[in-house]
């Protein structure tokens, strides 16, 4: 019942987990994602769990002997997600192909049903007012972020006229919209920052009025593998080392996943954070930046709300509760069944 050794890094921000431990971890993580009851503000669960299943198939059929995990978030890293995507491309081009029986069985799984990309972007024209020449648009981006988390950003804004270089390309006839590359890049670059940071940045664009920025973030997750090794990730760090010392029996994979919601919107009634791990930006902005921050907030009236849910295996449920109590917040905590 003592804290196990930590998993070593094999490269920058990278853990390598052998097949046996990785299979149990992937299975448990998939169940945690299903248990998290994530709304449409979060990345689509379907493609993610299918990626996890296929990563497991690659290990089960011995096409791969290990899984790479992002040490900061405890989630499979970019190489792992890209692995599934490129394997699928090769499978589409070559079919089951030659090589080992395991490889062919893995490809059968890959080709069994369609696989949506984890990283997607979309835009939708919500309303068009021809008199005012105003278009209400929703921009939607899901990305495997450089921070190692999986983030969905949804921006609702109204554009007057054709919009500038960083605006939205509209086709009123077809009722379609798409973010111009500059706008897309701005959202892409700011996905890891608070919703209000992106709200302020987009608010600076001419001819655009931002109404709402929503972020749904999957991860980080802290994990103890069945053999007792742990990768605490930044969630463990945010808990101030509590996870490191939290007593857990070895024998099965234990994990605690956190998913964060972060809204900045004009129609929010109050501004508060129900996230035990992240205070509001106004409470933690650097003194040197405070004047600029206040000016931005004054120019764009909106409020912020942050929340976080936890999903934990039974042995880690007490830790999740303790975290919420320590943060003085009331959060949803779901057990992994």
């Amino acid at each position: 019942m003592s804290a196990g050794p930590k998993l070593e890094l094999v490269s920058l921000n990278t853990h390598s987990v052998e097949a046996e431990g990785a299979l149990a971890y992937l299975e448990k993580l998939g169940r945690a994602l299903r248990a998290a009851r994530m709304s449409k503000n979060f990345p689509d669960r379907g493609p993610l769990t299918r990626h996890l299943d296929l990563l497991g198939e690659g290990l089960r059929h011995e096409v791969y002997d290990r899984l790479f995990v992002d040490a900061r978030t405890g989630l499979p890293n970019m190489a792992s997600f890209t692995r599934v995507a490129t394997d699928l491309e090769v499978a589409h081009e070559h079919g089951l192909g030659s090589g080992s029986a395991g490889k062919r069985a893995y490809r059968e799984q890959l080709l069994a049903s369609p696989l949506a990309a984890v990283e997607v972007s979309d835009a939708a024209l919500r309303r068009f007012d021809p008199v005012a020449g105003a278009s209400a648009v929703r921009l939607d981006l899901t990305k495997l972020d450089a921070t190692g988390t999986i983030i969905r950003v949804r921006v609702e804004l109204t554009q007057k006229g054709k919009g500038g270089r960083r605006g939205v390309e509209l086709d009123v006839e077809d009722k379609t919209a798409s973010a111009r590359e500059d706008l897309h890049a701005t959202i892409y670059r700011h996905a890891a920052f608070d919703a209000e940071t992106l709200f302020l940045r987009l608010g600076e664009l001419s001819g655009v009025e931002v109404e709402r920025v929503e972020r749904g973030v999957i991860g980080p997750v802290c994990v103890q593998l069945a053999d007792g090794r742990r990768f605490p990730s930044q969630l463990g760090g945010a808990l101030g080392g509590v996870f490191d010392d939290f007593p857990l029996a070895a024998g099965q994979c234990e994990l605690m996943l956190s998913v964060q919601s972060d809204f900045a919107a004009r129609d929010l009634a109050e501004e508060r954070s129900n996230d035990p791990l992240q205070r509001l930006l106004r409470e933690r902005v650097e003194p040197s930046e405070r004047a600029r921050y206040e000016a931005g907030r004054a120019a764009h009236p909106f409020k912020v709300f942050k929340d976080r849910k936890f999903v934990a295996t039974r042995a880690l449920l007490p830790l999740a509760k303790a975290v919420c109590e320590a943060g003085g917040t009331r959060n949803l905590i779901y057990p992994v069944r």
């Binding site: 490129t86 590359e181 500059d182 890049a185 670059r189």
Partner: peptide, 28 residues
């Protein structure tokens, strides 16, 4: 300024990984 370097490098990583897998397929 039109594209995120993070996004570009990710795309490049994808292509590079695909090329290596093409070579592995050829070996098979």
């Amino acid at each position: 300024s039109k594209r995120s370097i993070e996004e570009l490098l990710k795309a490049q990583f994808h292509i590079s990984q695909r090329r290596v897998k093409d070579a592995a397929e050829y070996a098979d």
